[in-house]
């Protein structure tokens, strides 16, 4: 296997063009050795286009090759996309967080990838560029094509950045995970929420839980029911019962039974919505 590191986007695209069928884009590559190794790995973590962190046209533009540590330490992200900060800070270990990247977390497409769960809750979009130099933007939640699969072809496409609309003054977000130990453990359940609160009522809620399906799963029915619901203890109680009822989960010998996972789905759903609402109210 050869490992190439592109220094600019033109070089990266040229290398992709020159190695059809045998090259794969990597950014961090922390999970690569667990998979079938490509003949050529193309490292895109040195491109200016994949490493910026800026606000443009009212949106956060986060380079896809930013590491989890870089995201977790970003003050603007912490302030206005808190769920992503919390998610990135809880991935793996310090070593993994210093190498693993935001885009990698999405494209690796693990069903309960922490950053991906937060990104879907925040309503993030992903911007890709192809071999012709054309860019396209897709919602992160629409990128998934199956277990550990996305619609992005890592042999002919590069994810450049993720775009997030920062939380407004009446919005808040939150992420939480539940695992068998405090670090280096896949979660039994993780979840994230983004809420907008107006006059003590939820105007909108995005609520995502995993692992349920191959992709981070929005609880669409519950989201709809919560529109206009009061920010009260009764509502949180309702979230706890209805979240668990809306989805079906599987048992895992290594992690937990389906019954317990289902219970945790309810608990975490209520927790992340509550925390997000508290943040929305604090920010006012």
């Amino acid at each position: 296997m050869s490992y190439l590191k592109a220094l600019n986007l033109r070089q990266a695209v040229a290398l992709l063009r020159g190695n059809p069928g045998r090259i794969r884009v990597v950014a961090g590559a922390t999970d690569l050795s667990l998979q079938e190794m490509p003949q050529v790995a193309l490292d895109i973590t040195a491109l200016p286009e994949t490493t910026g962190l800026e606000t443009a046209d009212g949106f956060f533009s986060l380079g896809a090759a930013l590491t989890h540590s870089e995201i977790a330490n970003s003050h603007p992200v912490r302030h206005k996309a808190t769920a992503l900060t919390e998610a990135c800070a809880s991935i793996g270990s310090p070593q993994i967080r210093n190498v693993g990247t935001l885009g990698g977390n999405v494209i690796n497409a693990a069903p309960a990838a922490d950053a991906a769960v937060a990104l879907v809750a925040l309503g993030a979009g992903a911007v890709m560029i192809n071999l012709e130099g054309k860019t396209r933007e897709e919602a992160v939640e629409d990128l998934y094509a199956g277990f550990n699969q996305t619609i992005i072809d890592s042999g002919s496409e590069i994810m450049l950045k993720l775009v997030i609309r920062p939380c407004a003054a009446n919005e808040g977000s939150s992420f939480e995970r539940f695992a068998s130990r405090k670090a280096l453990a896949l979660p039994m359940v993780n979840g994230a929420a983004r809420v907008e609160v107006v006059d003590g009522f939820f105007r909108s809620v995005r609520l995502v839980l995993a692992p349920i399906n191959p992709a981070p799963t929005r609880l669409l029915n519950l989201e709809e029911k919560l529109q206009g619901a009061p920010v009260t203890e009764e509502t949180y109680k309702k979230i706890e019962t209805e979240a668990a009822a809306e989805v079906e989960v599987r048992a895992s010998l290594l992690r937990c039974t389906a019954q317990y996972r289902s219970h945790l789905i309810g608990v975490l759903a209520a927790r992340v919505v509550r925390k997000a609402a508290e943040r929305a109210l604090e920010r006012k």
Partner: peptide, 20 residues
């Protein structure tokens, strides 16, 4: 699982981390 060790790595066989 049917005689096979299901957690044959330190990713799946959990020992405490320093945080624990």
């Amino acid at each position: 699982e049917a005689g096979r060790v299901a957690n044959s790595t330190f990713a799946d066989y959990k020992i405490p981390t320093s945080l624990d």
